[in-house]
Design a protein around this nucleic acid. Structure first.
Lengths: 242, 242
DNA sequence: GACTCCTTTTGAACGTGTTCAACAAGTAGA
DNA sequence: TCTACTTGTTGAACACGTTCAAAAGGAGTC
């Protein structure tokens, strides 16, 4: 069992062991979340199946909720993989945006039931699991950067007013789609995919329409609103701007 | 104690007693929600303070969540009272809309902390407490009718495309404001009130802009989207159309 | 009163997430 | 080897929401 061959760098075996325990708990959790859903996955069951005591699970993860933060990360990484080729080949903005959204829904599908139950916790503003919480900042930032990439590497020119805020707006749009998907009980999330097809058109149209003089003040307000939103979520948000 | 003078109509005293017990539990719950928040209000405490056994509370209310449905109703009634004079006197759409929204936030203020915790449950799509759930339909309908009244009795003409769907759109807008308010920790919800002032302008502007030929297709799509949303929430929604 | 039937009420019991004092196991210095 | 010290681990205990079999109460009928 204790196969730790050639501990390179003289790294302490202790750390390794702790890391393995942590990983075992994490893997078991994510598997159970997928297999039996959020609520049926009790901390006792996680502990039992990970061959660890109940208290030990709490040593590594402060609460059941905190286990979910890990899910966010994993889900995002899977999404990135699913998007890669599309982002490398496609240059049309509409196609890029639609593709990324469809991929998000598709990769999330195994976790559909889980996500529904999870949402209950994630929607709580005081919860560290809220997508707006400081704890979620890393994943949120990564996701926003993905949105920026969709736009930047496309052939569409974005009106200047919109440019700095557009990735955040698109991230909000993604959150909206996910919200819809969570409620969507249709076969294969077919309705959500149709929703994407229809709303992507609007969004792309709006991006160009933002140029229109009539709409200028509107756009200005909308942009400043998202800034307000951001302030609301994080009173002090230390973010590396790139 | 047993003061049931002149049981008119020969109504069975039994029913009266049951009704009183139910009311006592309900009053105690709402008071505790206000005073100590959602989570600190345990079913045991409600039972104790209502001078009733724990099981008895469950006889009248299927779960802690169901107690909240009652809160929705009460909150809406308080909102109506707070709006009355404004709706009778004011005819300008912007002023009417802003007034109603400000009133909603103001009357909800005592429940701010409670609402934050509550939201955790209410955001769960499978929860009967979701504002989109069938169980919430009565209050939702009433609130939507209030939105219709804001528009109908104002002096502003609404473009035909928008008319049937506008109350629902405004209700969604209200939900958005409440969502912001829940996250808003500023003194006296001052930020939410500012948000209302700014967004009301946009909304009113959008209502007139909906006439613009350029935007026609956009508006069309937006309208049909809300219909989609409605379908999502309630697979079979029996609603009295007036 | 005695009987039946339905409504109301009780409190013990279950499984849950979480906490915590205690213990075990490694690690490093003497 | 002995001695601290940190890290990792345990399981009992707590309060919670919820359930349920059983008891009590009340109303009508004989």
């Amino acid at each position: 069992m204790n196969d730790t061959p050639s501990p390179d760098d003289g790294a302490p075996v202790k750390v390794r062991k702790a890391e393995r325990t942590r990983q075992r708990i994490l893997d078991t959790s994510l598997r159970l979340f997928r297999e039996v859903g959020y609520e049926a996955t009790t901390m006792r069951r996680i502990a039992t199946e990970a061959e660890v005591s109940l208290g030990n699970a709490y040593y590594y993860f402060r609460s059941k909720d905190h286990l979910i933060q890990e899910y966010y990360g994993q889900a995002h990484r899977e999404h990135l993989v699913a998007c890669r080729s599309l982002l490398e080949e496609e240059t049309d903005l509409r196609a890029r945006l639609a593709g990324v959204l469809h991929a998000k829904i598709a990769t999330s599908e195994p976790y559909h039931r889980f996500a529904g139950q999870l949402f209950r916790t994630a929607a709580d503003p005081t919860s560290p699991l809220s997508p707006f919480s400081p704890e979620s900042a890393p994943v949120r930032t990564e996701a926003t950067e993905l949105m920026a990439r969709i736009v930047d590497e496309s052939e569409t020119r974005v009106p200047k007013v919109l440019r700095p805020e557009l990735p955040n707006l698109l991230w909000l749009y993604l959150m909206g789609i996910i919200l819809f998907w969570i409620h969507d009980a249709s076969e294969g999330a077919e309705r959500t995919h149709r929703l994407i097809e229809r709303t992507v058109d609007i969004v792309v149209r709006l991006i160009s329409l933002a140029r229109l003089p009539v709409l200028r003040p509107l756009v200005q307000t909308a942009v400043s609103l998202t800034q307000e939103l951001r302030q609301l979520a994080a009173p002090a948000l230390p973010e590396a701007s790139s």
